[in-house]
């Protein structure tokens, strides 16, 4: 089936089965590899993107549900230079293997868009992505650093 999907401000035509998860459309059809595959069952968060600004686990979001929504991936987080959260991530030296980090950042951006000065509890509640390398404390520090800077 043919779908029109809006990703990072541009419209794309993709011809895939309607049950194809957005994750695989992004990766295999659009070549946007920053969004990662970790579990495929909406548990790990590695595949987090924004659907109309809401953090969404794209491995469990079928392409047929994308009609009329605006999708943003890590590649288009900010137009001019790094997003303040990306700067904070680098300053706090967050990534280890790095595999989960794009998903973590997408989740964090969504959090800060709703709560500009999140408490520890807010962070605990919003940041449920898994990091197998255990970078949680630095993620927390980076979110606070970015919140202070924004």
């Amino acid at each position: 089936m043919a779908f029109k999907i809006r990703v990072n401000g541009a419209e794309h035509d993709v011809d895939v089965d309607g049950d194809t998860p957005l994750l695989w459309v992004l990766r295999d059809n659009l070549g946007l590899n920053g969004t990662k595959f970790g579990c495929g069952i909406a548990v790990c968060g590695a595949c987090t993107v924004h659907v109309d600004g809401v953090a969404t686990r794209s491995c469990s979001f079928p392409v047929e549900a994308t009609e009329g929504v605006e999708i943003t991936t890590i590649e288009a987080l900010s137009k001019d230079g790094p997003h303040p959260l990306q700067d904070a991530w680098v300053a706090e030296d967050v990534p280890q293997c790095g595999y989960c980090q794009t998903g973590q950042i997408m989740a964090a951006v969504a959090l800060l868009s709703q709560t500009d000065d999140p408490s520890d509890n807010d962070i605990d509640a919003a940041m449920t992505n898994i990091c197998r390398c255990g970078t949680y404390n630095r993620i927390r520090a980076a979110i606070k650093r970015a919140a202070a800077a924004m």
Binding site: L77, W89, D93, Q101
Partner: peptide, 27 residues
Amino acid sequence: TNRLDAAEKVDGRAEFGVDVNLPDMLV
């Protein structure tokens, strides 16, 4: 000293195994 690989790991550029993409490639 901050990691040299941090910048490319926060914007999706870092290439992991799953990201390898070759001309004419199947999955």
